[in-house]
Design a protein around this nucleic acid. Structure first.
Lengths: 231, 231
DNA sequence: CATATATTTTAGTACGTCCTAACTTTTATG
DNA sequence: CATAAAAGTTAGGACGTACTAAAATATATG
């Protein structure tokens, strides 16, 4: 008989930790390649050996498929769990920003904890209170309750050629310092940016945002996703 | 080095389980007597042996004082944790009812999970959004952030003599079926009840609520707390 | 292509939490 | 007050999750 943890979330028998692994695997395994052990370990702040162990457990539960020495992919059941978790996360972030006055660069950690504790009912009530938003405050699409989500792969600013103009769609929400930096540049979802210049050898990129020029590193540029403006 | 659980709450190094034990001990040890092992076990739905083990751990952490074969009391540090948890719980319940349309008889379980995941900041933002309420939807007083709370012991309806009139102050929030039953009788915080009759040998109590008479069992009456009306 | 480096897995251990079974202590009662 | 019943503790084990160290495999490079 599976151990029942008294204060575990209401949705499903999975522990919060297992849910986190699934979410990371979802994110890391987006492009054909399975999610690498070390990548998962880094994302979760655990040792690679811990990942190997958990992957076996998740595989036993039918949530992931593991290729030894190669990495893990989500099985359909695991994908469902991951998308539900992402839905929770993004709705909670939206609610905290819109209704409780949290700063958009400061909600990630809070949502990261609440997503494991919130019932489906709570999340749906939050979504309803916000008018069923389709994107979170960082521009990331919110999966539907049925698990559909826009998975189209966007270009990052680092992919743009010199002279290109693009609309900012979204950015990674992980690092609040990074988000605060972007805010000082005026880079937020919906903003228009233009690549004015690129230094050679992956040197800094000069961006024009709201008529101001800024130099940003490639690493930062690669974490801001855009849609090219056709015109 | 103490193990750090990745998805543990932001407030303190305690696990959610340990927090729950402290809360139960707080509740059970209100009147002079220490909280009995079995009482704690029943409240948490675990075996008495598990309680013995956890009490040793909590005592090692300086959170409770245990008298062997007798029970446990909170140490000052444990009391602080318990009161913060109760504050979280009651503010969350209030928020869910007032801002997200939860039924008052249905919020307990949700709050029970969220109280371990919510940061102090979130809880204080909720409290501020509600205008810093002093009671939760079931009439229970909300401890202050500094850990002060009204601990005066109230009479229950079962304590009232025939003919007494009283104002309902609060009731146990544990059991939503019980709360729905009370609602059908019109028994809510603030309501006025009169003990019209009492059958002998702990028989049913006849109450008058909003001009209607109801028979309730002693067990139910003992879970509704009142203030005698002096007049 | 052989070997060095990086990645991944296994083995062994720890800790928090839970359980059941057996033992001990307290309490209640004839 | 002796003994039975109730309450509590200890012993031993399981599971989820983590760690380190050592072994195995994959990749990269001279």
């Amino acid at each position: 008989m599976a151990t029942r943890r008294v204060s575990e979330p209401s949705h499903g028998a999975l522990t919060g930790q297992a849910e986190d692994y699934l979410k990371v695997i979802y994110e890391k395994a987006q492009g054909g390649e399975p999610a690498a052990t070390t990548a998962i370990a880094t994302a979760l702040g655990v040792a690679p050996a811990s990942v190997s162990g958990m992957l076996q457990r998740l595989a036993r539960l039918g949530l992931v498929r593991v290729e030894r020495y190669r990495g893990a992919r989500l099985a359909p059941a695991g994908r469902t769990v991951a998308l539900q978790l992402i839905r929770r996360h993004r709705i909670i972030e939206s609610y905290l920003v819109t209704r409780l006055g949290f700063a958009w660069d400061d909600v990630h950690a809070e949502a990261e904890r609440l997503e494991h504790a919130a019932s489906a009912e709570l999340v749906e009530r939050m979504a309803a209170a916000l008018g069923h938003p389709t994107e979170d405050p960082h521009g990331a699409p919110i999966p539907t309750a049925e698990g559909k989500v826009d998975e189209r792969r966007l270009q990052s600013i680092a992919d743009l050629p010199v002279g290109a103009t693009a609309r900012v769609v979204r950015m990674s929400d992980r690092d609040s310092e990074f988000l605060r930096y972007l805010a000082t540049l005026g880079v937020r979802p919906g903003a228009t940016v233009k690549v004015a210049a690129r230094a050679p050898f992956d040197g800094p990129i000069t961006l024009t945002v709201r008529a101001k020029r800024h130099q940003v590193g490639v690493a930062a540029a690669a974490r801001v996703f855009v849609e090219a403006k056709t015109r």
